[in-house]
Design a protein around this nucleic acid. Sequence first.
RNA 1: GGCGCCGUCGCCAAGUGGUAAGGCAGAGGUCUGCAAAACCUCCAUCACCAGUUCGAAUCUGGUCGGCGCCUCCA
Length: 550
Amino acid sequence: MTIQINNVLTRQKSPFVPVEENKLKIYVCGVTVYGRCHVGHLRCYLSFDAILRYFAHKGFDINYCRNFTDIDDKIIARAREIEAGKDGQWTQNAAYADYDDTQWQERFAEDEIIRKRAESSERHLAEIVSDYFIDIFTNEDFGPFDLYPATSEPRVSQHIPEVIDLIQKIIDNGFAYESGGDVYFDVAAYHAKTGAYGKLSGRDFTQLMEGARVTPGDKKRNAPDFALWKSAAPNEPTWTSPWGQGRPGWHIECSAMSDKELGTPFDIHGGGKDLIFPHHENEIAQSEAGLGHAFCNTWMHNGFVTVDGVKMSKSLGNFITIQEALKMAPPEVWRTVVLSTHYASPIDFSRTRKENEGEEAVRGTIDIAFDRLEYFYETLKRADEAVGEEAIADTAKLLDDDRGTKITDTFESMMNDDFNTARAMASIGDSMKYVNELCDMKAKAIKKLDGGRDSWRLTLQTAATELRKVLGVLNICNQSPSAALASMRDFSARQKGIDTEKVNGLMAERAAARAEKNWARSDEIRDELLTLGVELRDGVSGSDWKVIRS
RNA sequence: GGCGCCGUCGCCAAGUGGUAAGGCAGAGGUCUGCAAAACCUCCAUCACCAGUUCGAAUCUGGUCGGCGCCUCCA
């Protein structure tokens, strides 16, 4: 059974055929490091994480390249803002519109750190800025998420020779021109030769040419042309090139670095849907123009994270940063949220924020995922306890029910279909239900089974093992259930401001009341706990409690 | 304005020609001191209209509504 992927380039779902057998060469567009990441970035990298892990599970030897764009107008702009200082003259874009005092404080504290670092360095402030945010990306924003490690994380600033080399090839092939120190890609020339411009984004070349005019004074020949190399402006980081001092344009780094790290053509190029045009379209054009052969076979794009139906983006200022997200739920819950939706579909968070009076109370995406994850862990815990420590007799045989043995097969068939993690999660949920069903069996019924208790235990053990295997591929439920449940409860208690000491005191008091069969007092305490936001769970081996979410 | 995507149960969300996965919420039940949890049962014909087809949520055309890209964007 092969993996079917919806290829944006061909607009078809087709079997994945790697360039080299059993190898996956994949490039996922990284971030431009000028600020902290938000949930949109998180969604992207978590979506591709599941895809990467599934390829690894299928035995692929993975070469995964995820770049850092560390030379860019916005990085330079941030450097200028820092230079100007808190009270200096700089234009605030929409991203700052909703900033409150705390955010401004954090912002200026961050600026201060960067400024300090710059003082003890010979390097350009913009380079300090990008270094700083690469560090934040790696350690603070994505550190807690345990992403599948990239084979390489190239930075443009360290690949200037490769960039220059590629630009030169494009010029030599007649698809780029120098103009006043800049170098532009000649979209018209490229399209005349190949007819290929617009093949990824479905844009019509003629309309692109008509659509926009070249403004007077522009160094471009035609509107769709884009810069491969930008000549130096005052106070910018620059490098020496055959066309003078300057720096790379936006798209060229991905072309140069993917060719270097993966070789071309490579298998999969991924990123957010918003990169399709112009970024990826231009990447294809310049790469194929320079290299003279195909660039990448399969293009995959993840859907947006939206807020009230509108795309989350820095320029709109409607984003939830990853740091804020981590206060809302632990990393594993966020992963569960992302996995519950197909990678190409949007994820909307409006319901988690919109709690208007009169609106039907609906539980938020995060709370549902939180409870779902707890359900998974609770089920695994039950299974572990049911199986126990003692050895299972050799005479044990699996019960005649394939629900416990086809877990991996079902999972793979879901994942093979364009990495449908939503269906995979649903099938895991079905298996969890089956495990609970087994755990609910009465001792009498278990005895009557063919092979008795040992067969029952063997079946449970097999199902739990398979479940852990597929959950491991999705990189959730990897911890010991008890530890995970305890930390999730702590998280919720802290978040809701629940006094754990007080709850434990009430629990003890209730246990005493129950021992005396003082049901009235016992129920009274239950109600009291309920008002605290705590739900009781009485079991055979004593009572436990859980924080009610939402 | 151009190009493109989407509209599936109260909410979320799979499903791209063969007769609607799953989750949340809701109803009933088993279990329980009573509950909770767990498990069982029930709960949609797919925005609207017309067409193609033996057969459509899935294809075509139109209408209405939402969004995205076209400037930076995961």
